[in-house]
Protein backbone atom coordinates (compact mmCIF):
# COMPACT_ATOMS: atom_id res chain seq x y z
CA UNK A 1 0.00 0.00 0.00
CA UNK A 2 1.36 3.38 -0.93
CA UNK A 3 1.65 6.42 1.26
CA UNK A 4 0.05 8.76 -1.25
CA UNK A 5 -3.42 8.55 0.22
CA UNK A 6 -2.49 10.54 3.29
CA UNK A 7 -4.76 13.25 4.49
CA UNK A 8 -4.48 16.57 2.67
CA UNK A 9 -2.48 19.14 4.57
CA UNK A 10 -4.42 22.32 5.19
CA UNK A 11 -2.96 25.07 3.05
CA UNK A 12 -3.12 27.90 5.50
CA UNK A 13 -2.79 27.07 9.17
CA UNK A 14 -5.89 28.25 10.95
CA UNK A 15 -4.28 28.23 14.38
CA UNK A 16 -1.26 27.28 16.40
CA UNK A 17 -2.78 23.84 16.95
CA UNK A 18 -2.63 22.97 13.27
CA UNK A 19 1.09 22.32 13.88
CA UNK A 20 0.00 19.47 16.10
CA UNK A 21 -0.47 17.52 12.91
CA UNK A 22 2.77 15.54 12.60
CA UNK A 23 3.06 15.99 8.86
CA UNK A 24 2.47 19.70 9.14
CA UNK A 25 4.91 19.88 12.02
CA UNK A 26 7.61 18.09 10.05
CA UNK A 27 7.18 20.40 7.07
CA UNK A 28 7.37 23.44 9.31
CA UNK A 29 10.33 22.30 11.37
CA UNK A 30 12.27 21.36 8.26
CA UNK A 31 11.73 24.84 6.90
CA UNK A 32 12.95 26.66 9.99
CA UNK A 33 15.66 24.29 11.17
CA UNK A 34 18.51 25.40 8.85
CA UNK A 35 18.06 29.00 9.94
CA UNK A 36 17.90 27.92 13.58
CA UNK A 37 21.10 25.85 13.28
CA UNK A 38 22.91 28.86 11.85
CA UNK A 39 21.53 31.27 14.43
CA UNK A 40 22.37 28.96 17.30
CA UNK A 41 25.88 28.42 15.96
CA UNK A 42 26.52 32.12 15.47
CA UNK A 43 25.18 33.08 18.90
CA UNK A 44 27.23 30.38 20.61
CA UNK A 45 30.34 31.32 18.70
CA UNK A 46 29.97 35.05 19.34
CA UNK A 47 28.92 34.63 22.97
CA UNK A 48 31.66 32.16 23.87
CA UNK A 49 34.49 33.85 21.92
CA UNK A 50 33.49 37.25 23.25
CA UNK A 51 33.19 35.88 26.73
CA UNK A 52 36.41 33.87 26.71
CA UNK A 53 38.77 36.25 24.95
CA UNK A 54 37.39 39.77 25.10
CA UNK A 55 36.33 40.20 28.69
CA UNK A 56 38.64 41.15 31.56
CA UNK A 57 39.47 38.69 34.33
CA UNK A 58 37.47 39.07 37.48
CA UNK A 59 39.42 40.84 40.22
CA UNK A 60 38.61 38.09 42.68
CA UNK A 61 38.08 34.96 40.62
CA UNK A 62 40.66 35.51 37.90
CA UNK A 63 40.08 33.84 34.56
CA UNK A 64 38.06 30.98 36.11
CA UNK A 65 35.02 33.24 35.98
CA UNK A 66 34.81 32.65 32.24
CA UNK A 67 33.28 29.25 32.68
CA UNK A 68 30.16 31.25 33.52
CA UNK A 69 29.44 31.36 29.77
CA UNK A 70 28.86 27.62 29.78
CA UNK A 71 27.66 27.14 33.32
CA UNK A 72 24.84 29.65 33.57
CA UNK A 73 23.22 29.02 30.15
CA UNK A 74 23.31 25.23 30.58
CA UNK A 75 21.88 25.46 34.10
CA UNK A 76 19.14 27.72 32.80
CA UNK A 77 18.30 25.30 30.00
CA UNK A 78 18.41 22.30 32.34
CA UNK A 79 15.50 23.78 34.28
CA UNK A 80 13.68 25.22 31.29
CA UNK A 81 13.87 21.90 29.44
CA UNK A 82 11.99 20.26 32.31
CA UNK A 83 9.52 23.12 32.30
CA UNK A 84 9.00 22.66 28.57
CA UNK A 85 8.43 18.94 29.13
CA UNK A 86 5.85 19.81 31.78
CA UNK A 87 3.97 22.10 29.39
CA UNK A 88 4.17 19.53 26.59
CA UNK A 89 2.92 16.79 28.94
CA UNK A 90 -0.03 18.94 29.96
CA UNK A 91 -0.86 19.58 26.31
CA UNK A 92 -0.75 15.84 25.65
CA UNK A 93 -2.97 15.05 28.61
CA UNK A 94 -5.51 17.73 27.74
CA UNK A 95 -5.48 17.82 23.95
CA UNK A 96 -3.98 14.45 23.01
CA UNK A 97 -1.61 15.83 20.36
CA UNK A 98 0.99 13.20 19.63
CA UNK A 99 3.58 15.77 18.58
CA UNK A 100 3.40 17.28 22.05
CA UNK A 101 4.14 13.98 23.78
CA UNK A 102 6.96 13.23 21.37
CA UNK A 103 8.42 16.71 21.89
CA UNK A 104 8.50 16.05 25.63
CA UNK A 105 10.20 12.74 24.97
CA UNK A 106 12.68 14.44 22.64
CA UNK A 107 13.51 17.18 25.12
CA UNK A 108 14.45 14.86 27.98
CA UNK A 109 17.87 13.71 26.73
CA UNK A 110 18.74 17.29 25.76
CA UNK A 111 17.75 18.41 29.22
CA UNK A 112 19.79 15.69 30.86
CA UNK A 113 22.88 16.69 28.87
CA UNK A 114 22.34 20.33 29.90
CA UNK A 115 22.11 19.21 33.52
CA UNK A 116 25.35 17.26 33.21
CA UNK A 117 27.10 20.25 31.60
CA UNK A 118 25.89 22.48 34.41
CA UNK A 119 27.05 20.01 37.05
CA UNK A 120 30.46 19.39 35.45
CA UNK A 121 31.21 23.05 34.73
CA UNK A 122 30.04 23.83 38.25
CA UNK A 123 32.49 21.29 39.65
CA UNK A 124 35.33 22.65 37.53
CA UNK A 125 34.48 26.17 38.62
CA UNK A 126 34.03 25.19 42.22
CA UNK A 127 37.40 23.50 42.53
CA UNK A 128 39.54 26.71 42.43
CA UNK A 129 36.84 28.83 44.08
CA UNK A 130 35.74 26.70 46.98
CA UNK A 131 38.64 24.28 46.98
CA UNK A 132 36.40 21.29 46.34
CA UNK A 133 34.91 19.56 43.33
CA UNK A 134 31.67 18.92 45.03
CA UNK A 135 29.89 20.42 47.98
CA UNK A 136 26.41 19.56 49.19
CA UNK A 137 25.31 23.04 48.44
CA UNK A 138 21.54 23.46 47.91
CA UNK A 139 21.86 24.51 44.27
CA UNK A 140 24.25 21.73 43.37
CA UNK A 141 22.16 19.21 45.24
CA UNK A 142 18.98 20.40 43.53
CA UNK A 143 20.60 19.88 40.16
CA UNK A 144 21.68 16.42 41.14
CA UNK A 145 18.09 15.64 42.10
CA UNK A 146 16.87 17.13 38.82
CA UNK A 147 19.31 14.83 37.06
CA UNK A 148 17.73 11.84 38.85
CA UNK A 149 14.27 12.99 37.78
CA UNK A 150 15.44 13.16 34.17
CA UNK A 151 16.87 9.65 34.42
CA UNK A 152 13.61 8.27 35.82
CA UNK A 153 11.57 10.00 33.14
CA UNK A 154 13.74 8.65 30.32
CA UNK A 155 13.81 5.17 31.84
CA UNK A 156 10.01 5.09 32.01
CA UNK A 157 9.74 6.07 28.34
CA UNK A 158 12.14 3.28 27.46
CA UNK A 159 10.46 0.64 29.60
CA UNK A 160 6.96 0.82 28.15
CA UNK A 161 6.27 -0.62 24.74
CA UNK A 162 2.97 0.94 23.78
CA UNK A 163 3.75 4.54 22.75
CA UNK A 164 0.45 6.02 23.93
CA UNK A 165 0.63 4.29 27.30
CA UNK A 166 4.21 5.48 27.67
CA UNK A 167 3.17 9.04 26.79
CA UNK A 168 0.37 8.97 29.38
CA UNK A 169 2.47 7.52 32.17
CA UNK A 170 5.47 9.76 31.56
CA UNK A 171 3.16 12.78 31.50
CA UNK A 172 1.74 11.84 34.90
CA UNK A 173 5.29 11.28 36.16
CA UNK A 174 6.37 14.66 34.79
CA UNK A 175 3.52 16.42 36.58
CA UNK A 176 4.13 14.68 39.89
CA UNK A 177 7.87 14.99 39.45
CA UNK A 178 7.58 18.75 38.94
CA UNK A 179 5.79 19.15 42.24
CA UNK A 180 8.37 17.03 44.02
CA UNK A 181 11.26 18.81 42.31
CA UNK A 182 10.01 22.11 43.71
CA UNK A 183 9.46 20.50 47.12
CA UNK A 184 12.97 19.06 47.03
CA UNK A 185 14.38 22.45 46.17
CA UNK A 186 12.88 23.94 49.31
CA UNK A 187 13.76 20.93 51.40
CA UNK A 188 17.37 21.09 50.27
CA UNK A 189 17.51 24.82 50.98
CA UNK A 190 16.29 24.13 54.47
CA UNK A 191 18.72 21.28 54.88
CA UNK A 192 21.87 23.19 54.04
CA UNK A 193 22.49 26.87 53.46
CA UNK A 194 25.20 26.77 50.87
CA UNK A 195 28.26 28.26 49.30
CA UNK A 196 26.75 29.10 45.95
CA UNK A 197 26.45 32.71 44.96
CA UNK A 198 23.03 34.19 44.30
CA UNK A 199 21.44 34.26 40.89
CA UNK A 200 23.75 35.65 38.24
CA UNK A 201 20.88 37.19 36.35
CA UNK A 202 17.75 38.77 37.63
CA UNK A 203 15.45 41.47 36.48
CA UNK A 204 16.05 43.87 39.32
CA UNK A 205 19.79 43.90 38.54
CA UNK A 206 20.71 44.41 42.18
CA UNK A 207 23.13 41.52 42.39
CA UNK A 208 23.84 40.97 38.73
CA UNK A 209 27.25 40.42 37.26
CA UNK A 210 28.90 43.48 35.81
CA UNK A 211 27.94 44.66 32.32
CA UNK A 212 31.18 43.53 30.69
CA UNK A 213 30.32 39.95 31.58
CA UNK A 214 26.61 40.46 31.22
CA UNK A 215 26.25 41.10 27.49
CA UNK A 216 28.35 38.20 26.20
CA UNK A 217 26.49 36.05 28.72
CA UNK A 218 23.17 37.11 27.23
CA UNK A 219 24.41 36.17 23.76
CA UNK A 220 25.62 32.79 25.05
CA UNK A 221 22.25 32.19 26.69
CA UNK A 222 20.47 33.05 23.44
CA UNK A 223 22.77 30.54 21.74
CA UNK A 224 21.89 27.83 24.24
CA UNK A 225 18.16 28.52 23.93
CA UNK A 226 18.39 28.31 20.14
CA UNK A 227 20.51 25.16 20.35
CA UNK A 228 17.95 23.58 22.67
CA UNK A 229 15.12 24.55 20.34
CA UNK A 230 16.75 23.18 17.24
CA UNK A 231 17.82 19.96 18.98
CA UNK A 232 14.30 19.39 20.25
CA UNK A 233 12.82 20.10 16.82
CA UNK A 234 15.31 17.71 15.26
CA UNK A 235 14.72 14.96 17.79
CA UNK A 236 10.96 15.41 17.64
CA UNK A 237 11.21 14.99 13.89
CA UNK A 238 13.10 11.74 14.43
CA UNK A 239 10.48 10.49 16.88
CA UNK A 240 7.68 11.39 14.45
CA UNK A 241 9.41 9.49 11.65
CA UNK A 242 9.85 6.50 13.97
CA UNK A 243 6.16 6.49 14.80
CA UNK A 244 5.31 6.93 11.13
CA UNK A 245 7.46 3.97 10.21
CA UNK A 246 5.80 1.90 12.89
CA UNK A 247 2.36 2.95 11.67
CA UNK A 248 3.22 2.12 8.08
CA UNK A 249 4.61 -1.27 9.05
CA UNK A 250 1.54 -2.01 11.14
CA UNK A 251 -0.66 -1.17 8.18
CA UNK A 252 1.49 -3.26 5.90
CA UNK A 253 1.13 -6.20 8.26
CA UNK A 254 -2.65 -5.96 8.22
CA UNK A 255 -3.08 -6.03 4.47
Amino acid sequence: MSVTDQKPIPKRPSSFWSYANPVKFLAFSERVMPALWWLAGICLLVGLVWGFFFTPDDFRQGSTVKIIYLHVPSALMAINAWFMMLVASLIWIIRRHHVSALAAKAAAPVGVVMTVIALVTGAIWGQPMWGTWWAWDPRLTSFLILFLFYLGYIALWEAIEDPDTAADLTSVLCLVGSVFAVLSRYAVNFWNQGLHQGASLSLDKEENVADVFYFPLLVAIAGFVLLFLVLVLYRTGTEIRLRRTRALMAREART
Binding site: L148, F149, L151, G152, G177, F180, Y186, A187, F190
Partner: peptide, 12 residues
Protein backbone atom coordinates in the same frame (compact mmCIF):
# COMPACT_ATOMS: atom_id res chain seq x y z
CA UNK B 1 14.63 4.77 40.09
CA UNK B 2 11.28 6.56 39.89
CA UNK B 3 10.37 6.46 43.57
CA UNK B 4 13.66 7.34 45.27
CA UNK B 5 13.88 10.93 43.94
CA UNK B 6 10.29 11.41 45.11
CA UNK B 7 11.37 10.33 48.59
CA UNK B 8 13.90 13.18 48.90
CA UNK B 9 11.72 15.79 50.68
CA UNK B 10 10.30 13.26 53.12
CA UNK B 11 13.75 11.91 53.92
CA UNK B 12 15.25 15.36 54.39
Amino acid sequence: LLVLPLYVPTLI
